[in-house]
């Protein structure tokens, strides 16, 4: 409890086609539960979580903005790229189309986001293609996605918001990557809008100590 509760605050956005499970990933991360019938996200919702990066021995506060994948909200979603440190680009492994569209989402990210933004490609819904007979057919193979991720310099993970498999892993991977960039000095604190040290660089310091304790609950 004592001392600093987190070392860095990282802003993440989750993007990708409609209905690939962006909101579900976020809720799985923050609440450890699965939404059976989520409504399509209108605008953007917010969630946050503390994660630990063991190799760096650092505690990270992830602030995630869940964006709307529907085309009509795309221009709004673009407004978020610039301020983010990390981006989860999500597609659905049972939908070829969502994977193809990931290219255009990536183009958006490249166009609007900070060049040093860490982007991780997340293949969601792997639970649907477990060995059971009658399961939905996988339309994007792991190898193909991995290959594309390598070509584009993205991190890659497959996950399931329903079972929870790979979800935290995706965020941890992305966060460690950002941390290593910070260590290498790619970001400096003033230039990346998505990364904040725990010490607020504002002058709102009057209650800092108290705030730290409060927020870890």
């Amino acid at each position: 409890m004592a001392g600093i509760t987190w070392h860095y605050v990282l802003k993440f956005i989750i993007t990708g086609d409609a209905a690939v499970g962006k909101s579900s990933l976020l809720i799985r991360l923050t609440d450890q539960r699965f939404l059976l019938n989520p409504d399509p996200t209108l605008g953007v919702e917010f969630g946050s979580k503390l994660i630990t990066i063991p190799e760096e021995n650092k505690i990270i506060k992830l602030q995630c903005w869940d964006t709307a994948g529907t085309e009509s909200f795309r221009s709004i979603t673009r407004s978020y790229y610039r301020g983010a440190a990390g981006c989860l680009l999500v597609y659905d492994v049972t939908s070829r189309k969502s994977f193809t569209n990931a290219r255009s989402w990536l183009a958006d990210v490249r166009e609007h986001a900070d060049p040093h933004l860490t982007c991780i490609l997340v293949g969601n819904k792997v639970d649907l293609c477990d060995a059971d007979a009658g399961a939905k057919r996988r339309e994007v193979s792991t190898e193909e996605a991995e290959l594309w991720a390598q070509e584009e310099g993205l991190l890659f993970v497959e996950a399931s918001a329903k079972s929870g498999q790979g979800v935290e892993d995706a965020f941890v991977k992305a966060a460690s990557d950002i941390l290593s960039k910070i260590r290498r000095g790619v970001f400096d604190d003033n230039r990346s809008p998505g990364v904040k040290l725990s010490k607020p660089h504002t002058n709102l310091t009057m209650e800092t100590g108290a705030v730290k304790q409060r927020c870890c609950s």
Binding site: K11, G43, V44, F46, W65, F73, I76, S79, Y80, R82, G83, P193
Partner: peptide, 9 residues
Amino acid sequence: DIQKVLAFE
């Protein structure tokens, strides 16, 4: 939407 994006920024 504007409220959210400004808060984000």
